[in-house]
Amino acid sequence: MACRVVVVDDSGFFRRRIAEILNADVGIEVVGMAADGKEAIKCVKELKPDVVTMDIEMPVMDGITAVRHIMAEAPCPVLMFSTLTTDGAQATLDALDAGAMDFLPKRFSEMAGDEESAKALLRRRVRTLARSRVRAATSGAAAAPRSLLGAATARTQGPSVTPVSASGARAAEHLSRAADINPALLKSARAVLIGTSTGGPVALQEVLKHLPKTFPLPILLIQHMPASFTPAFAERLNKLCQIEVREAATGDMLKPGLALLAPGGMQMLLEGGSVARIKITDSEPGTIYKPSVDISFQSAVGALRGQVLAVVLTGMGADGREGARALKGLGARVWAQDAASSVVYGMPAAVVEAGLADDILTLTEVGPALVKGFC
């Protein structure tokens, strides 16, 4: 059965263009269109789509306000179209805060290297969001907390959701709890590394809000996100959390109670020495994720000799699996988010499927488990 989509934009040309692209996929059907937020709410209530694509700036009612109403009255996954500017970043973060699940650049040239790749990306994102709704409904999983952001992914390319085998699904049923965490197994850790993608902004806030100002380890955050978005995202996290959160820069030292967010469009590396430091670099040609969880995790192999706790949260694809494998080879502990609380069970599924996860936790258990393990 095709996933049903409502397209919302004040530009008739853009609505028709998006509808044409989506309808070219036999697995997608555009069942309605709206020119403003007020029309969108009515459309969603009447048509009950699987996914809504939403513009931000519209007359009568803007997209952010419309998302709030939709989430309150007829919840369904919303994909925002955003401009990759500083102002666009703030507006998109506000839309995600209102409950939107994901976003893509409105300009196709910013989505991917060519138009056909951009079209394929849009279709893939819509199908992924539709599947996430089906999985949540069929599993009976409660929706993830949305107190800061919905799901934002940053990279405009990447693989689809990692399938979960029967053995992986069975493994994911055996969840750890914060009370089960043995601090003795974490005593050698010198840092916490957290990697995530789709669904990551809300997941990171849910985790970090539990940490006291006196949290004894440094934290590195790798979230797939555009360069124009990470400064605003770091600022929001810093205002909402007890620990300090800021965008990482070359030369930053790892300090207890400091969370450093990898800059969008770049790679965040750890360099060793008596005190580990951050190095921000450009990506090698052909690198899919900017920043990449694998690249940051693998840099910790040399810099910290695996003395880390690596945490892989919700996200599309498998970024983080090979980095977790390298770290685990040197004795690092690896945690993965469970399927039910993940917006997209791709990245953590890849870790679980590879047999790398020491503990599988629900999203709301990760923060308390960090506190129990280190405080």
Rank of each mutant, 00 (worst) to 15 (best):
S188L: 09
A171K: 04
K42R: 07
E110D: 14
V78H: 02
A151G: 12
L217V: 10
A169H: 11
P49F: 02
V161W: 09
A40G: 09
A141I: 09
L186P: 14
V192H: 02
A189E: 04
L193E: 04
M1I: 07
P256V: 01
E46I: 12
M253E: 11
A130R: 07
A332P: 05
L47C: 03
D25G: 10
V44W: 02
T198L: 15
P348M: 14
K239G: 12
I56A: 01
M80H: 07
P291T: 03
D102K: 03
P226C: 13
L22H: 04
E173P: 00
K290M: 06
G27V: 00
V371L: 04
D87A: 08
A166P: 02
S109E: 15
D10C: 14
G99L: 00
I41M: 11
P159Q: 06
V7H: 14
A203E: 05
E57W: 04
D87R: 14
P285H: 15
S165I: 10
V5D: 07
T362H: 11
A303M: 11
A143Y: 07
E20D: 12
V8L: 04
G320W: 01
L175R: 03
M71T: 08
K279L: 13
A154Y: 06
D359L: 05
S176F: 08
L258F: 05
D87G: 15
A130N: 10
T287R: 15
R123E: 08
A259L: 09
G158Y: 02
L254T: 15
P75L: 04
G273M: 03
Q337A: 15
N182F: 11
N238M: 04
P285A: 12
L330M: 15
P368S: 13
G286T: 14
K106Q: 05
G317Y: 06
V52R: 01
A310G: 13
R155S: 15
L330H: 08
Q90G: 07
A19V: 01
